[in-house]
Nucleic acid binder design. Structure first.
Lengths: 339, 339
DNA sequence: CTGTTAGCGCATTCAG
DNA sequence: CTGAATGCGCTAACAG
């Protein structure tokens, strides 16, 4: 069903049909209604490819994410999807599995797909070859979750948030506070969060034990259990994300420790599921859906303006410390265990 | 960067460049390498829209899902995404929030987007207007999770799986087994699972208490707590999905009941997170990622064959009862509470 | 307000 | 094996 057929059936020119759809005001109400009726009868749908080819705009946004198996990114993608539809955009998501080569391949793929702009979560903006390519191509893009002075980003103050969380734990009486993270090298967020932990500990005048670094994708419960064995085990764990926090709670359970009585656990991300857990997850909540929404809006704005986004367009969204049940006061006997 | 530029730079015709990419054999190795080199130097990427317009194939699949906030669908989409990339397809996902009007709008949107095929999870295939429209359009499609005799589906035997789960609970000594479900009317899966529950109860010669039906999206923990209050409360809960199971566990906790000691809970879906919870979720695991993968493969096959999929192409994938820690033997005093 | 026409970038005839 | 020419469906000048 093409515009030609509609024009013929309605007894008007193709230009009129096109106008009736794209500039309803530039056409007589009578002819507009005629065209609309015929189009409906013929079940006409404008061909997106032809339009894209002609206008050089696809009204499609590429989305590059590490994985959908982490609810954080699923929530973000949901936010992106909703905002995109609302703005008249389609989205083309690709997952990278935290792999650099996949990041590059994804960008390549999406550029070939004629996307008008890209939203991406990369491992590390500083070292991403994909971003170089993007800037060279001049396609508008925005980073989500990442934070970097040279790129437009939508993110939260991870470092400050974690430092604050550490302070809260200190106020609860904890002294031996450890941090659990995924592979540091694989994520700038992890690095920022770790810095926040170090800062928080320093400000409290506490010595920070070595980072507990576990492989990203794997369950890593075994490794976590090992950390909880020593006599001078931590009384509180700051986890770099909610998935790790959940696994840490499991590791505690397997090690015979009760959460929060024997061990306090704080997560990071604020996945919705955390609120339904038992104990409800105490976590630093990011506005995941909003991060997606703002990314879309920023991008749509830039596209409409016909220019790429600059680093100074970056948005720092508010985070919130979400109080759950996985944190409690440090117990006396825990302190004793430390001495 | 167009094919024209590459042709000019390489000193050949556009036809040769096109052939060098699409039919490498139909061109001299020498010219092929020349073209490839020039293309690389010029950073040439074939324009997807132009190709689609010309070939009438977009190599894009539409995906219609209820939500990404349920990890089940996020896992499925991940499977779809991976299989799509592997098969040279892009995906265009749209979420419907379990709303019928959104289902229709989504299909409309995707058809306009020139997708070669669609994967969809609808509320109920029997009543879906979206499917009518799809069949009329002659576009290949496949339903995921849904199960219906008149449509091509990739799913599991939900009814049998739940009946089996009930049997297992009975063998653990449970007699008072209730089912918790989302809005029945909003999902054929929920209906099938409920039938499985009824069958399992009947086969065990047990009376099935009224279905505990809670609104889908909401947390519903309060409603669940109410169900656990009566003296003749159930000793086991069969939940229509893992999210409900997680909330049920929380509701039990808030009601002062221990899982699994006071209450056994079985879920349905097999979300990855379930294994990391404490207690680890006992659930009927669906191969979510595989459901996505098979949907893509079936569709790709049909598209290659130039025909729509028939209902008899449906796939029934194996499910697995995943033993966790949220189920235990019924206790004596529980039985006492029932008398 | 409406019609005619060119061309977006590519794949594909048909000649050579 | 390669080149010239056509048209996929649409929008944007331009002409009337």
């Amino acid at each position: 069903m093409s515009i030609q057929a509609v024009a013929a059936q309605a007894g008007v020119s193709v230009a009129t049909v096109s106008r009736a759809f794209n500039f309803p005001d530039k056409v007589t109400p009578a002819t507009r209604e005629l065209v609309e009726r015929v189009a409906r009868e013929l079940n006409y749908l404008p061909n997106a490819s032809a339009r894209t080819l002609r206008t050089q705009r696809s009204r499609t946004l590429g989305v590059v994410l590490p994985t959908l198996l982490n609810p954080t990114f699923a929530e973000c993608l949901q936010g992106i999807a909703r905002a995109a539809v609302a703005g008249g955009y389609a989205i083309l998501p690709v997952t990278t599995g935290y792999r650099l080569d996949e990041e590059e391949r994804a960008v390549q793929l999406l550029l070939a797909g004629n996307v008008d702009g890209l939203i991406l979560v990369v491992s590390n903006p500083s070292t991403s070859a994909a971003l170089q390519r993007l800037q060279a191509a001049g396609v508008p893009y925005v980073l989500a979750y990442n934070r970097h002075a040279d790129h437009p980003c939508v993110s939260v103050d991870s470092e400050g948030a974690v430092a604050d969380a550490v302070t809260r734990l200190v106020l609860l009486g904890h002294r031996r506070i450890a941090m659990v993270s995924g592979t540091l090298a694989a994520s700038d967020r992890a690095q920022q969060r770790y810095r926040g932990y170090q800062r928080g500990m320093a400000e409290a005048g506490l010595a920070a034990p070595p980072l507990v670094e576990v492989p990203f994708v794997e369950t890593a419960v075994d490794a976590l259990c090992a950390e909880l064995r020593p006599r001078s085990r931590p009384t509180a764990l700051v986890c770099s994300n909610d998935l790790l926090a959940i696994r840490s709670i499991r590791a505690a359970h397997l090690s015979g420790l009760a959460v929060p009585d024997d061990l306090s656990v704080v997560g990071f991300d604020g996945i919705a599921l955390g609120e339904d857990l038992t104990p409800a997850l105490t976590t630093i909540a990011q506005p995941n859906s909003d991060i997606g929404r703002h990314s879309v809006e920023l991008l749509a704005q830039a596209i409409a303006g016909g220019r790429a986004l600059q680093a100074d367009a970056s948005l720092l969204l508010p985070h919130a410390f979400r109080d759950g049940e996985s944190c409690a006061n440090a117990r006396e006997d825990n302190d004793a265990a430390l001495s």
